[in-house]
Amino acid sequence: MTRRVFFRGWMYVAMVIPLALAAYTAFADPFESGGPIGSQTSDGYGALGPVVKQPIEFPHYIHAGPREKGGMEIDCMYCHTYARRSAVSGIPRLSKCIGCHQSIESVKDKPRIKLLFDYWAKQQAIPWKKVHDLPDFVRFNHERHIQRFIFKQDRPTREVCGYCHGDVASMTTARRVKALSMGWCVSCHEKDHKIDAVSEKTSHGPSDCWQCHK
């Protein structure tokens, strides 16, 4: 009999967890940052991805970071130029990196820049590793999101990219900080979003399965 009482008590505790998670999902801000390793985002799943070691430790904070912290505030889309016209944002071509760095004498001797010019000398593409990977059955489209939030709503690029990628401008190499899971996507699609910068009209993101699973 004692065993039975213990079992029931454990069950009540266990039932509270999904309820708490459901409440958290309903009210949490989907644009929150990931937090430390092991922390959970709105849909209750591990958000912060592992540290991905890249062939060159690219310092996003120098290129895109705020001026007051020594950054150059370069717009994300200056390098990730494909994001506004393709499903993928793409990695900038090597010639784009060299295009600027061949004229910046002050950092040419830095180890990372030397490595960059080594790849250029060999005319070899840098084998960057994918950080924000989605399962093969999911089709995310950068172009539609960028066109809607940056060009129609006129929001800052850093903020819009940050909805999904976190504040990359404060990172060295990028690291996943959002869950990128279906519940997390849907939580944003369910919100009201203004259709453009001037209108008060709002709409939701699509909720049809086939929009993402084709």
Binding site: D43, G90, Q124, I126, W128, H132, D133
Partner: peptide, 28 residues
């Protein structure tokens, strides 16, 4: 089951180019 179990950061390479033709757009 709704988790992101098949997301593997760092497991794949991203296709990148040295100096592609102008008409090459990743994803298109």
């Amino acid at each position: 089951g709704c988790g992101n179990t098949s997301i593997e950061s760092g497991a794949e390479l991203v296709e990148s180019y040295v100096q592609p033709e102008n008409f090459v757009v990743p994803g298109v």
